[in-house]
Amino acid sequence: MSELSAEGGHGAVPLKDVPTGQGVTPPEPEWPLYEVFVRGKRGLNHVHVGSLHAADDRMALLHARDVYTRRNEGVSIWVVRADAITASSPDEKDPMFAPSGDKVYRHPTFYDISDNVPHM
């Protein structure tokens, strides 16, 4: 019996001997990928919620509304072409974040203030 895992969500799916499609170029050109950001309510930042494909910006917005805000999850949506995003390397040990790692004096807890000083 080939192995099937319950974690197919709506039912078990086989996890062996199934092609993954990695490194394969699809037969028709794909619409560009957009990353979607939603502001949950006034006063909050936009937060990344996922991605989708669309032919143009306007379609991306409409699809984002249908896919990510079916239950009042948002009051504002940003869509950004994924290829327009510049990202840092994900590694925490990356030298990128070294400048902030050794500056403990940037945090309020660095300073000893005697307990009898109120409101600080």
Partner: peptide, 20 residues
């Protein structure tokens, strides 16, 4: 690192499965 369109192709070719 897989293309969404390619996944659809694999489904309709019957190479990837769905829940019975």
């Amino acid at each position: 690192g897989v293309s969404r369109l390619e996944l659809t192709e694999l489904l309709i070719a019957g190479k990837q499965k769905y829940s019975s």
